[in-house]
Every structure is written in structure tokens, then in C-alpha cells.
Design a protein around this nucleic acid. Structure first.
Lengths: 226, 226
DNA sequence: CGTGAGGTTGATCGCTTTCAACGGAGGTGG
DNA sequence: CCACCTCCGTTGAAAGCGATCAACCTCACG
């Protein structure tokens, strides 16, 4: 187990920054560098400031399941017991706040509103994981990809525009391991959507959503309890 | 949307019963009778006292995904916003405590330890859902069934015995919809395990685990963060 | 310019689904 | 009391979807 490469550090102040300690530091992690690894002592919680990080679990036989992608504003590494239960990598370069778990817990004891906020975040994570289990368990490859794209659209800014530009910082393998597919199937499904004129794919990492309603229909996105 | 059939009611006192209100009532729900339905106003949280309940979501095209089975001691219906996000049924007859959400929230504000306990439960539910997403995304039918049986063993009493007797109150369809399989595949997988002498199946609802270590190996149950 | 990682596409294989038939258990009504 | 029916579970045969294996392409980088 090696520790995250720290490119730069500086004290910061954010939603989670003002919990009354000076122990929070901002870090920059580069592509594929770990924020933490499975089994490491869960000393810090990370608030994503910029970029995307990827939480995943690797099985003993090499199979991998991406548990979640975390975007700016998300908190990762919370609610693990003593040791982290999975690995967490940067997808592309990311900036994060590293908050010592002990400081956070101390702050929560003093300020009940923080506890409520944490409970709210945990609750919304439960909802999101439940939603993901629906996708993994009962959707076809094409539906999974459509769902994934719709989710990305809703996380990004102007979801109502005629053509939504999505940056895909993660690789096809990341997407595949998130949706329980293979890279080939991800690629083929994207091609199908392109042929159907629902998306445009000028570059592997750049994607334009042409018809989000059609995508929504495919994904059967009835829920969207953000 | 109809309301749960209430067979009997009586005031009770349990871990969640002593939150300083007399509004908690014990209910008995019979097989397939709903505790709550998707979209219903989330007025109550339910503590399972006896039996098993099943939380699931039904897609518009009829596909169903069982999100979780809840056993005695579990709390269901917490952390939904205004309306429940999914349906919840009794599997066989179940006894539950119905706790008004408002009472619970009020009690949490007065007693920080309750808030901690809730956060802990939410956290453990996140862990359990993450675990389930691994199973749904990356495991074969046989591995899924093995995993399911191991989980049941660990929830039930003497997990160390040579031969563990499991009662399967849920139908094959419930299991299938929990694991993202079909009833036929569930049945076939159980047969395979029986042929391999890992389990005995004298009756569809009664199962003896003969070799839990072999099941564990199949399921690749490395984690088990209870 | 060579190299390697990431992405796409094609061909084939195999597991799970689908469709279908059958058997047993429990419930109901003649 | 028994015929009938329905629900649940099991098993078989066939089909289909996604995985696997393999080739090729592009692009970034040394």
C-alpha cells in the first residue's frame, strides 16, 4: 500500500473546511494515483473540488467493480470502519480536500447540523446505490449506457440544451466496470447510439448528446431522485 | 395505493420504542401485504420484529428488482424524502413496529446518540448496497446464489455448525429479482449446488448447508464487513 | 519514428434467458 | 371426499445477448 502522490498542498476553506480545525489540506492527485487503498487505515475523508475520482473494488481473480464516480462537491471515504473497504483513484487530475476523519467526527459532536448533513449525504448515497443496483440487475447493455449518459448529463450543467457536450474523463474500462459490462460492449453500445443519431462521438473522450429524451426512454429513467 | 392490512396493534417498547412518544404501534402484516408503496407519503419507519420483509422496485415494463430483504432488527423506510422510493412487502407473516417519521426526527434532535445510531445504520446500509452492486455486476449465477446463501447463513444463528439449516421464506422469484436472475436460473443453480453436495434441499423452503466453506469460495466472500 | 495504451470492429462461444412442459402442494367448491 | 385449479418449483430445448478472442486503428509520447 503506497500513499497518494501529493502534488501540492495548501490550507483551504469550503463547506467542510470551516469545521474549526486547521488540519484540512488541499491536495492535487494525478491520473490513476490513489486517494486511498482498500485496507488502509481510514484516516481521511476527501471532498472533491475538481476533477473526478473513481471508487472500485478488485476481486481476487482480477475482476473489478467500479462502485461510484465522485464529482466536485462529493465526499468520499466516509463511513468506512477502521480500514477503507475499497480503492479510490483519480480519473484524470483531481483536486481534493483531505479532512482528517477524527476532526470531522469531533466537529459533528459539537455541531448537530453537521451530523444532519452527513446523515443526509449517507441517505442520498443509499438512494444512489439502490438505483445503481436496479441498473446492474435488470437493464440491458444499451439501457445501461443510456442511463449512464443521462446521469452524466444531469450532473453537468445545462441539461436542457439542444445538444449537451459531455467530457468523458474515464476510460471505457472504467465505464464497463461501473456498469458490469466489458469494454467491447461499451464501445459497441456507444456506436449503436451514434448510428441511431442519439449521440455524436467526435473523439473518444468528447460526446454530444443529441436526443436526451430518447436516451431517457431507453434508460427508463423514471426516478431521478437527485 | 392501499394501506397495509393491520392484523393487530399494541404499544411496545424496543430499541427504537423508547424515544419518548407513545405513537409507536406494533403491527402484524401477512404474506404479500404491503408495509408501504412507492410514492406513498413517507410517514413511518418500520422496525422489523419478526419475519422478513422485501423492498423492491417495479419498472414500467414489469421488470422487478428486489433492493433488500430486511430481517428482525432492521429498520426500513428511513431516508426516503417525502414519498417512499420503492415498495415494501411482507414475505410470510411479519411483525413490525411502525414509528412515525416525525417522532423519530424529533427524538434525534433531542438525543444525539440516536442520530449517531441512525448514521451508523445508514453507513452500514451503504456498505451493504455497495457489496450488492459487486454481486450484481460481476458475479455468475452460481456465484450469486452461493453468495446469497452465505449471507443468509451469517444472518442466522449458529453459522459454525457442520450443517446449517436455512429457512427460505421468500420465493424463487424474490431471490431471482434480488440477484438479477430468472427463477429458472435460480432453480438450476440450487440444483447444481445440490448435485455438488454443498447443500441439501429436502423441501423448496428448507435448505441445509453442508459445506459453507465451499460456498464461500464460490461466492468469493472476502469481505463480510457485517 | 517506434512503441504502447486505449478504442473500435468482427467472429465465435457460452451462459443465461426464454419458451414450454410437467409435477406437487394447497385451496375451493361440487 | 374428491375433482379441479392455481401457484410455485423444476427440468428440458432453443434462442439471444454479452463475453471472449483477435485484429486493426488512432494518438500520445519518448
Amino acid at each position: 500500500m503506497f500513499t497518494p502522490a501529493i502534488i501540492s498542498e495548501s490550507p483551504v476553506s469550503t463547506p467542510w473546511g470551516n469545521i474549526g480545525t486547521s488540519s484540512i489540506i488541499s491536495k492535487t492527485v494525478k491520473t490513476h494515483e490513489p486517494l486511498f487503498c482498500e485496507g488502509d487505515e481510514a484516516t481521511h475523508v476527501y471532498e472533491i473540488l475538481e476533477g473526478v475520482v473513481c471508487c472500485y473494488k478488485i476481486f481476487s481473480d482480477g475482476r473489478r467493480q467500479v462502485i461510484t464516480f465522485a464529482f466536485p462537491g462529493d465526499l468520499v471515504g466516509f463511513g468506512h470502519g477502521k480500514g477503507y473497504r475499497f480503492d479510490c483513484d483519480a480519473v484524470g487530475t483531481a483536486r481534493v480536500n483531505a479532512i482528517p476523519t477524527s476532526s470531522l467526527l469531533r466537529a459533528v459532536k459539537e455541531r448537530p447540523d453537521l451530523g444532519e448533513k452527513l446523515l443526509e449525504m449517507a441517505t442520498s448515497e443509499v438512494a444512489s446505490m439502490q438505483n445503481h443496483s436496479l441498473v446492474l440487475g435488470r437493464k440491458s447493455a444499451l439501457e445501461k449506457i443510456a442511463y449512464f449518459l443521462v446521469e452524466l448529463c444531469e450532473r453537468s450543467a445545462d441539461c436542457s440544451a439542444d445538444s449537451i457536450e459531455l467530457k468523458l474523463p474515464m476510460t471505457r474500462a472504467d465505464i464497463a466496470d461501473f456498469l458490469g459490462l466489458t469494454v467491447e460492449t461499451v464501445s459497441r453500445s456507444l456506436t449503436k447510439l451514434r448510428v441511431k443519431n442519439l449521440i455524436e462521438l467526435p473523439h473518444p473522450a468528447t460526446l454530444f448528446v443529441r436526443d436526451i429524451e430518447a436516451l431517457r426512454d431507453l434508460a427508463e429513467c423514471e426516478e431521478t431522485f437527485h
